[in-house]
């Protein structure tokens, strides 16, 4: 076993470090710290161990080891449903919910991170074995990690659209942002609050792909949620009129949104929207199809 120690340890180390680097508790506070962290660290280490041990097993001609990797894949799929379930439960207690698409995206990300840890560990232990040097193996592991991480990086709204300041106006009870009707606000006090203290933004898609992606309701919910948690929302459960709603201008696919935030700083709203991730499950690419391309010109 000793002769494999280098291989296994370097693999677990690289995979484990990779998983730690992927754990960040930012403004989303997910995974939650500290208990959520423990769960993901332990699962990441298990993934790394599985990847690292596969190489010595194959050297020993224990081909059944591959079935363990299949088993691991099954386990990690369970992580996705576990995350989904827990996020769906949390979402009910949010003033501005994330929405199912955002939840699905987060769950998918967590599943993928375990595969990244496993792959990093596998490549590390493989190159440690091949070059007979743990240092080289760790170098290859780091390179794998960076390449995978780079290729998996998602787009942000700013990559597909322009975000500018919007103007709130009322036509009778109908609240409009840049001429697009958002909702019917019957309460005069709420209308007054919107006019005096709320801020608004307009998201202008760069092309037809962006137009289709931003039109997706899940994507819009994600934008609303992100804006609300970053700027703070002035709303309680009995004030549905202050829920930020992103509406679509059906003429040109632009999205407009008004928010009654704690910090009425429109620059911050624009930045929060610009930095919202483009959801994997909302992404559409009509321009990649012959019909879509033809219709676009």
């Amino acid at each position: 076993m000793d002769r494999y120690a280098d291989i296994v340890i370097s693999g677990i180390l690289a995979g484990g470090i990779g998983r730690i680097l992927l754990l960040r508790a930012d403004y989303r506070q997910y995974p939650s710290y500290p208990r959520g962290y423990v769960t993901h660290l332990v699962l990441g280490l298990i993934a790394a161990a599985l990847g690292a041990i596969a190489v010595p097993a194959l050297i020993e001609k224990e081909y059944t080891a591959v079935t363990f990797l299949a088993l691991a894949a099954q386990q990690f799929r369970d992580i996705r449903s576990l995350e989904r379930e827990s996020l769906e439960r949390i979402d009910k207690s949010e003033l501005v919910p994330r929405g199912d698409c955002y939840i699905e995206d987060i769950a998918k990300t967590f599943e993928a991170r375990n595969y990244i840890a496993m792959l990093t560990a596998l490549i590390t232990s493989l190159s440690t074995y091949y070059f007979k040097n743990a240092g080289t193996g760790l170098g290859f592991g780091a390179a794998t990690f960076l390449i995978v991480q780079y290729s998996l990086r998602g787009q942000l709204v700013k990559d597909i659209a322009e975000v500018v300041k919007g103007e709130i106006s009322f036509e009778g009870p109908l609240m409009k942002v840049d001429g697009v009707v958002i909702m019917n606000v019957g309460n005069a006090v709420a209308r007054e609050k919107y006019l005096s203290r709320a801020i608004a933004a307009r998201i202008i898609p760069r092309d037809d792909n962006a137009r289709a992606t931003l039109g997706n309701i899940g994507q819009r919910l994600a934008i609303q949620h992100n804006a609300a948690i970053q700027l703070g929302i002035r709303k309680d459960v009995d004030e549905p009129e202050f829920t930020p709603v992103a509406r679509r201008n059906t003429e040109n696919g632009e999205i407009v949104m008004a928010i009654f935030s704690v910090e009425p700083d429109v620059e911050c709203l624009i930045e929060a929207i610009r930095r919202t991730p483009v959801l994997e499950s909302s992404k559409r690419k009509p321009l990649d199809s012959p019909a879509g391309r033809k219709a676009a010109d």
Partner: peptide
């Protein structure tokens, strides 16, 4: 009255 009903039912008032 509409404000009070809205608050009691967590509903939204529309004109």
């Amino acid at each position: 009255v509409s404000l009070l009903i809205g608050k009691a039912t967590k509903g939204m008032v529309h004109d």
